[in-house]
Design a protein around this nucleic acid. Sequence first.
RNA 1: GCCGUCUUAGCUCACUUGGUAGAGCGCCAGAUUGUGGCUCUGGAGGUAGCUGGUUCGAAACCAGCAGACGGUACCA
Length: 490
Amino acid sequence: MTENPDTPFRPEARSPRGFIDKRNAQIAIERRLIETVSKVYESFGFEALQTPAFEYADALGKFLPDSDRPNVGVFALQDDDDQWMALRYDLTAPLARFAAQNWETLPKPFRRYAYGPVWRNEKPGPGRLREFMQCDADIVGSDRPEADAEVIALAVTGFKALDIPTRIRINNRKLLNGLLTSLGVIDPVQQLGVLRAIDKLDRFGLPGVELLLGAGRKDESGDFTKGAGLPSSAIQPVLDFVSAGGADTRGDVLNRLANVLANSPEGLAGVEDLGRIGTALAAMGVDEASAVFDPGIVRGLEYYTGPVFEAELLLETRDEKGNLVQFGSVGGGGRYDDLVARFTGEKTPATGFSFGVSRLAAALALVGDSHTTRARGPIVIIAFSDSDMGEYFKLAAEIRAAGMSAEVYVGRSGMKAQMKYADRRVSPAAVMLGGDELANGTVTIKDLDAGRQAALQISDNQQWREARPGQVTLPRQDAINHLKSIMNMT
RNA sequence: GCCGUCUUAGCUCACUUGGUAGAGCGCCAGAUUGUGGCUCUGGAGGUAGCUGGUUCGAAACCAGCAGACGGUACCA
């Protein structure tokens, strides 16, 4: 840089795009989500597991960095021995690695839950960050549909415990695979195209999906998206299949699917699996509204091999301007029978579910979640004079010993600013131990909530100052009890 | 990745055809020698995203880059 040496370089204070700072309120929401969901997971017999943020890139699967584009999709870097390491992009791949590495000694089937941040190096958007939290539960080593049902029940129970209205939509990869095979659509590229087309059902509706199944679709901006190129004879059966959802009960959907898939052995096997899942769900008391069968759910993930599930948020969320915000799925999962086999060569059936913690927290922040009690600040002890600081800290220690949080103001501003500070921290009380109080063996305590209330009635400043709403002066030894009563601890 | 719109004070936004910036809110202070709100008064705060070009002169016009937003693609 050719700058004047007198002006030092000043970096712009900013966070990398797709990465955000979380303040007290949001941390509180995320913490509650993780704690609640973890308890539910444990009640279903899942044990906790923490794996590192980094994995060797080859352990993460197909999104390997190659030498030209080492950072597509993942954040990767080379270790000092030249091996590629990458930040994990989900919690499932590390589980597969862990299970493969420790398979001999694990109790099988292995049930574990995990939570923590994951990272994806892709374009961020609203509700879409490059660092976010997930909370997963998986069962490795069971091929029973009942294991899938447990994972679904787990998700339903978790959302119920959080009191967040959601619906789990359940599908099975075998259904569509079977249908396509029976229709003679066996080209994997074409099959993938069909999955992508169906995934757009929410946004473009049946007519849009029809176009994408065939030649393709042009959107409003004139952009053309190439379709799956199915023959017209195959399009209608796929549309019929997708439309088979939306019946009143899980049983009704299965009946419809059985009709549509009558010519497909694999498809009927998939319906059979769903039937057993449905039976188990009913036994576990999962009601019809909380978990539905829906052949329109795709979950683009190529690694899913059987049942797939997706959690849909049923809250209406709006941003500051009142616009509807579509949050998409707030969780999902499914059966992945080939993931562990990547390491061991042995087919190891597994199924799991993932809570999108960050996305849920963002949604709850938008709706002003009623559970989110506003984060309260500490009791603030006003600092009057340097020579009395010891008295302030002594009182702070007493308050903490009584189970309340307290803080001595350690800035250098005057009293008015200190009161403002306490107000801004949403403190329950301010405590004054000034020269008068110390001389008289008293303490003055101001109930800030009571004052806030009173302020609404008083418009005259003189009156406001004289009333000193919520404020009392009492013997020093009564301070703790009075504070407790303000905090509703008596 | 592709297409489009946008970028002026901490925030939300103004500034008639290019003549070197304003408001509201917020923030700080005072009125009120030891008291949050209201009211009034004063103050701080901007190289108009960055870089280059056109011009006597650019926040405004042009180009490149960066970032934000919207759509689309992708999404483990």
